[in-house]
């Protein structure tokens, strides 16, 4: 009887460990850049890149159905890469740009040369606005709905696949 109990205990403990390790290995404890997904966009105030008296508060509630937020900079090579896609998206959705740690002259000449896809461009001189909305780096793109929820987020440059996905979401 005592021996049986010992065997039972051993099997029981082994099974418990197995289950715990199995689930722990499967769980993604690591970095999950989608933590802000389906959460409300934190309130941010953008100061216009061209006119510091001009401010724009986000999120906009119940105005446009969807809008897009894109963090970019003139010194960021992948931003240059994704720029044509933003130019294509601008006819479908209002884009709010956050100009990350950039010089005003460089940023404006970037937009003059490659086209301006942004409905409004805010300046983020110290990177604090980007941190406020949970950004990792640039470029980064968010789609926000009329309730102010972040319904899509992409870290890194936009590509054709992401373009199609965003088009599908905002249809």
């Amino acid at each position: 009887m005592k021996k049986q109990f010992k065997i039972f205990l051993l099997v029981f403990v082994t099974v418990i460990f197995f289950v715990i390790f199995y689930y722990s290995l499967k769980a993604n404890n690591k970095n999950n850049p989608n933590i802000m997904l389906n959460k409300p966009l934190p309130v941010i105030e953008l100061t216009s890149l061209v006119n510091t008296n001009l401010k724009q508060e986000l999120p906009l509630i119940n105005r446009d159905k969807y809008y897009l937020i894109n963090i970019w900079s003139s010194w960021c090579v992948p931003c240059r890469e994704e720029h044509p896609i933003l130019m294509k998206l601008k006819d479908k959705i209002k884009i709010y740009g956050i100009n990350y740690k950039d010089k005003k002259t460089n940023a404006t000449s970037f937009l003059n040369k490659l086209g301006n896809p942004f409905y409004f461009t805010g300046s983020d001189k110290d990177g604090s606005v980007s941190i406020e909305i949970g950004a990792y780096g640039i470029p980064e793109t968010y789609v926000v709905n009329s309730q102010g929820l972040i319904i899509f987020k992409h870290v890194g440059p936009l590509n054709k696949k992401i373009y199609l996905r965003i088009s599908e979401i905002i249809k």
């Binding site: 404890n29 970095n31 802000m36 110290d126 604090s128 980007s130 941190i131 406020e132």
Partner: peptide, 30 residues
């Protein structure tokens, strides 16, 4: 950037807990 934001929060008398919660909300427990 994050260090700057944290520094500002410390100056604004936020507690450690509040600062950690702020970061967890945006970036998760990781």
């Amino acid at each position: 950037d994050l260090k700057k934001v944290i520094k500002k929060k410390i100056i604004n008398k936020k507690s450690d807990r509040e600062i950690y919660n702020y970061l967890i909300e945006r970036y998760g427990d990781w």
